[in-house]
């Protein structure tokens, strides 16, 4: 009997903890604002200990300050959960290599683009045989399962020998171990990996993009007023030179230069 009561108590405490953990989605309550970013992309959105670094993080901090939303509190926005996080108000907005697509616009609205990236290849620094997507025949390629890049490269190079993992980190390891010949995804993400301390000098970005990804700030669908505010802030971000500074600080170490069309002109909010 005593044992039974202990279990009931444990469940009650667990439920209470769970509930309190789920609460507090709104941003109006305090002086913090919840912003969705990626936690695992060096140079873009990376969590290391209690610190957050990257181009997307810098933009998120800038927006929070510029729009006086409060202290940013970063929430991990895994690709598959981004729309849900916004729809259920768990985050105010998302800055996480979030490409603007029509299917996504059905669920959320976008401000931006704030950056134009493109799919590219990351290869070993001493590998001269891969110069672009057309030289991939017979090569082993790596990408992340279920990602846009993986589907795209399979369309462009039918029958490509593609290894897919759950994370890019495993791809980088396989690339360094010479088990695959190239890693493909957005050039920004690749530049981030190439610039990492552990990979410096061993990997290089080919620098010939074969797709166009418009990164936008994801926010609640139909919130035109907020979208307009973010768009104005983005324009200021570009014109003040903060944008270029953030790009050079985060992606510069890999010798990365933003591609044509950058900085982009944000689309009007609708």
């Amino acid at each position: 009997m005593k044992f039974g009561r202990t279990i009931v108590a444990a469940i009650a405490v667990g439920t209470a903890l769970g509930l309190s953990g789920c609460g507090g989605g709104g941003s109006a309550a305090g002086s913090t604002v919840k912003i969705g970013i990626k936690f695992d992309q060096p140079g873009l959105g990376l969590k290391s200990g209690a610190d957050y670094t990257g181009m997307d993080v810098d933009l998120a901090k800038y927006l929070a300050k510029e729009l006086s939303l409060g202290t940013p509190e970063f929430v991990e926005a895994v690709s598959a959960q981004r729309e849900t996080l916004i729809q259920t108000d768990q985050v105010k907005f998302i800055v996480g290599t979030y490409s603007i697509t029509d299917a996504r616009k059905e669920k959320v609205s976008f401000a931006g683009p704030y950056f134009i990236a493109g799919q590219d290849l990351l290869v070993r620094a001493d590998d001269m045989s891969i110069t672009g997507v057309e030289s991939l025949a017979g090569k082993k390629l790596c990408s992340v399962k279920g990602s846009t890049s993986a589907a795209n490269v399979q369309k462009l190079v039918p029958g490509v020998n593609l290894q897919e993992y759950g994370t890019y980190t495993l791809c980088v390891d396989a690339l360094k171990a010479k088990n695959v010949d190239a890693l493909t995804t957005d050039d920004t993400i690749l530049a981030g990996y190439a610039a990492q301390e552990a990979n410096k000098g061993q990997l290089k970005v080919v620098g010939k993009t074969f797709s166009k990804e418009n990164y936008g700030v994801g926010l609640k669908k139909g919130d035109t007023a907020f979208c307009q505010k973010v768009t104005d802030a983005l324009n200021k971000y570009f014109s003040s030179g903060e944008w270029l500074k953030a790009v050079e600080k985060n992606l510069g170490p890999a010798g990365y230069k933003p591609g044509a069309g950058n900085p982009p002109t944000p689309a009007p909010c609708s």
Binding site: E83, A103, R104, E106, G146
Partner: peptide
């Protein structure tokens, strides 16, 4: 489940 991830990436409108 891999295909599910891919479908969710491209078609979040019918998640």
């Amino acid at each position: 489940s891999g295909l599910m991830k891919e479908m969710m990436e491209f078609r979040p409108d019918v998640i």
